[in-house]
Design a binder for these strands. Structure first.
Lengths: 184, 184
DNA sequence: GTCTATATACAGATAGAC
DNA sequence: GTCTATCTGTATATAGAC
């Protein structure tokens, strides 16, 4: 049962994404996975250490999903459609945010290492989007690619926000539907 | 000096938008405006009461700004450009969110009355955007108008998120630039 | 309307037994 | 590796004097 560490990470990720990083405590994790607060401190001495482990695991996983999309689809539009679905699934029933959105929102509670990891994640995702856009081979300058990628990421993160506020995935769908139509 | 109430609201709004609703306490407000915690409770007995007062004042003010835009511009594209600037200004230097974004993110900490006010605000803003879009007189079905308005609002809220994560208004500008170009 | 003082709950974190 | 017990700080909130 050395998987306590994994259980803590799973629980911490879900709570971060549904309630925000300030919205849960070690006591919440402890009661959920059936151990004591002190035991969590054994695995992650501080909440900052937990945050860093969470962001590292999460961003590795999402970027791996992007590579998997590349392996499955050659066409840029199909890749982008799959990417929209990635963010829709992450939004769940409208109760969940991308971990990086959740962390991006609590800059006062996170140290510089975590914030740098969030920015790195977003930069990598924008680069991945740019590559998918190039596959569309619409003639665009590099500057346009940058800005288009930034707007797509903002749209998807904003769509997750909408879903959360409306407490339904319908909020996500309404926000991305026009974009998806362009990819059809 | 009965303007203590206003000072509390001003301070509470700023702290909500820069740190999130869970990110400040009555002690923060008290030390900033130079009174004691107990005095704040005299004006707003609970933090929930403060939240409700904040969202009411804020949404009235923003919707009034939308009406002012209508009075200044007849053209739909010019109205939308002014609206983008409204959200850019609200984003400040990237440290600030629309109060409704900040509140939409902390559903566990807010009661149903506040959450309903946030949803009402967003619905009103989407309606205003739809009206501006109609002025463009591009032939669109009503469904399309709904979805386009939802995507514009999500883009602007996502752009504020980007600015916050990147800790610079550049994040906002990058996200909205392609959209602004369509309005030029 | 503002204050001091206090109640109660919970946060993150540590010491040390087992 | 997990536990009990405890420390310290801070949160929202209330009672009652001035």
């Amino acid at each position: 049962m050395t998987d306590t560490k994994t259980a803590i990470l799973d629980c911490g990720e879900r709570l971060s994404r549904t309630r925000g990083f300030d919205g849960f405590s070690y006591a919440d994790i402890a009661s959920e996975i059936g151990i004591r607060k002190a035991s969590i401190h054994h695995h992650f001495p501080t909440k900052a250490a937990l945050a860093l482990a969470l962001i590292k695991r999460y961003s590795d996983r999402v970027l791996a999903s992007c590579e998997a999309i590349d392996d499955t689809y050659r066409d840029g539009k199909l890749r982008l459609k799959a990417f929209v679905n990635l963010y829709r699934d992450a939004s769940s029933k409208g109760d969940c945010l991308c971990l990086c959105v959740a962390f991006g929102l609590a800059p006062e509670s996170l140290n510089e290492a975590v914030k740098a990891s969030v920015r790195l994640y977003r930069a990598n995702v924008r680069l991945w989007i740019e590559t998918a856009l190039e596959q569309e081979s619409v003639e665009q300058s590099n500057d346009d690619l940058d800005m288009t990628a930034a707007s797509i990421l903002a749209l998807l993160e904003g769509a997750q926000l909408s879903a959360r506020t409306e407490q339904s995935v319908d909020g996500f769908n309404a926000a991305v539907q026009m974009f998806e139509r362009r990819l059809a």
